[in-house]
Design a protein around this nucleic acid. Structure first.
Length: 453
RNA sequence: GUGGAUGUAGCUCAGUAGGUUAGAGCACUGGAUUGUGGUUCCAGGGGUCGUGGGUUCAAAUCCCAUCUUCCACCCCA
């Protein structure tokens, strides 16, 4: 007999875990709805054309590809096979892949359904995504993302709303967070100032690590990527600007004055902070010039959320992408969105022991089963409870009562109703309170009104 | 993809100078209690020691490979 198992990096969720997961999903979903976002779903798999090239080389490597059906070897690229060119060979036997995130499939959806969509389109989407990453703390191969995006609007009010959503969700979940903001245009400006715009990505990847590996190693990496000492000395002071968010922006204006693109990024940031000052936000919000984020498609605002209480990396991220739909043939449509990492949020709440203890959704009442006649006697009253919105069940088999009570006990059912021969004769029920260990007799017709008394 | 650790009953883990029949707690089943759970007591079932190969008279224990899980890096939610 083979031992049952599941693939690396995947998980089963028990009823107890699902209850906690649903708490997170419901919280996020309710806030999304509150801000006027509508739900959509897209398939677990997309064609590889849709997915490849959107997440950089690293992302392409992490895509799960699906083997073609049928006699797929007929179309196989034998040349690639003999050259041991795995990616090329894989493409010849696979044309579908599991989605890597929700943003790219959403962009595909928007372009494909452009005639049925009224812009600006505010959609939310809560679905699993798959990455062939090596699992570790807070990292899985199958995990849920909870995305909210606004597409077809350039207004920075959208950025404000997304920040408010983040604030609202984590406030409801009782987590302390730091919302880090930056703007790709500022980073582009820095690359422009030193005259090496083509090195934007390597530069951002390097400075993103500042708080992790330290100043010296970042400068070393910058030098490795082809920056000379003069370039590095230009960048260095920018990264260490201190003060309030508004003050940093002010100094940036001077340093990056020669870059038009940087100035427009700075202006956007100033506007966002000005907008935020009109609403009350509980979370810490910081301008972080070292925030880069890997995904290649971001062009404006970038957002990343970190827990101030747990060390698990980013628990929510997002940003503005000006031309993601362009790749699919719809130009000049700007989008901005965020993505909550539900699985990491789960780990944080678990670590901090902040899951609510009251579970109002669990079963409240169980009828024991003494036999066929007795069960039939219970059925109308069971029905009555359910019609009154009280979660209830009858034990399906007439096994020993101690077993049935044991079942109720293990499932945290607070009330058990005993109905045997004598109860039937007297038209009563014996109601047992499983928490206090007490029991009482009530008239069957008074069950509903006397239950909790 | 790179580096390090790990794997013994359903779960958490003991068990190495290699040596009869591999243990415990929890869980499970039955009984004390044929209509009363969460406590207690008694009894019982359950393991190809991750998998494959090797060394040896003899391997859970030593060696090699492989897979799993975990941690760090890369990257990211």
């Amino acid at each position: 007999m083979q031992k049952p198992s599941i693939p690396k990096g995947t998980r089963d969720f028990s009823p107890a875990e699902m209850q906690k997961r649903d708490y997170i999903f419901n919280t996020i979903r309710n806030v999304f709805k509150l801000y006027g976002f509508q739900s959509i779903e897209t398939p677990a798999m997309e064609t590889l054309n849709t997915l490849l090239g959107k997440y950089g080389d690293e992302g392409d490597k992490l895509l799960f590809k699906i083997l073609n059906s049928g006699d797929f070897l007929k179309k196989a690229d034998n040349e690639a096979y003999s050259n041991i060119d795995s990616p090329k060979f894989a493409n010849s036997v696979s044309e579908k892949g599991l989605r890597y995130d929700l943003t790219v499939p959403f962009a595909r959806y928007v372009v494909q359904n452009r005639n049925n969509i009224t812009f600006p389109f505010k959609r939310y989407q809560i679905q699993p995504v798959w990455r062939a990453d090596r699992p570790q703390k807070g990292r899985f191969r199958e995990f849920y993302q909870c995305d909210a995006d606004v597409i077809g609007s350039n207004s920075l009010l959208n950025e404000l709303e997304l920040i408010q959503i983040i604030d609202g969700v984590f406030d409801k979940l009782n987590l302390n967070i730091d919302i880090k903001l930056n703007n790709r245009k500022i980073l582009s400006g820095i690359a422009e100032i030193i005259g090496k715009p083509e090195l934007l990505i390597p530069i951002t990847v390097a400075i993103d690590k500042l708080d992790k590996i330290g100043e010296e190693k970042v400068m070393q990496e910058l030098s490795d990527k082809g920056l000379n000492n003069k370039d590095i000395e230009t960048i260095r002071p920018v990264l260490f600007l201190k003060g309030k968010n508004e003050e940093i922006l002010k100094s940036l204006r001077d340093v990056l004055a020669k870059s038009e693109i940087a100035l427009s990024g700075i202006e956007e940031m100033e506007e966002i902070f000005a907008l935020i000052s009109n609403v009350s936000v509980k979370a810490k919000i910081s301008l972080d010039l070292t925030l880069a984020r890997g995904l290649n498609y971001y062009t404006g605002t970038i957002i990343e959320v970190q827990s101030l209480e747990a060390n698990i990396g980013s628990i929510c991220g997002g940003g503005r992408y000006d031309d993601l739909t362009g790749i699919f043939g719809l130009k000049d449509v700007s989008g901005v969105g965020i993505s909550f990492g539900a699985d990491r949020i789960y780990e944080v709440i678990k670590e901090l022991n902040k899951f609510p203890t009251d579970n109002t959704e669990s079963l409240a009442i169980m009828f024991t089963n003494f036999g066929k006649q007795e069960a039939k006697y219970c059925l109308p009253y069971l029905n009555q409870l359910r019609h009154s919105n009280i979660p209830a069940m009858i034990f399906p088999d007439s096994i020993k009562i101690s077993k049935q009570l044991d079942y109720a006990n293990k499932n945290n059912i607070p009330f058990v109703i005993l109905a045997g021969e004598s109860e039937m004769q007297n038209q009563t029920f014996t109601v047992k309170n499983m928490i206090e260990g007490t029991q009482k007799s009530v008239l069957a017709n008074d069950l509903l009104t006397n239950l909790y008394k």
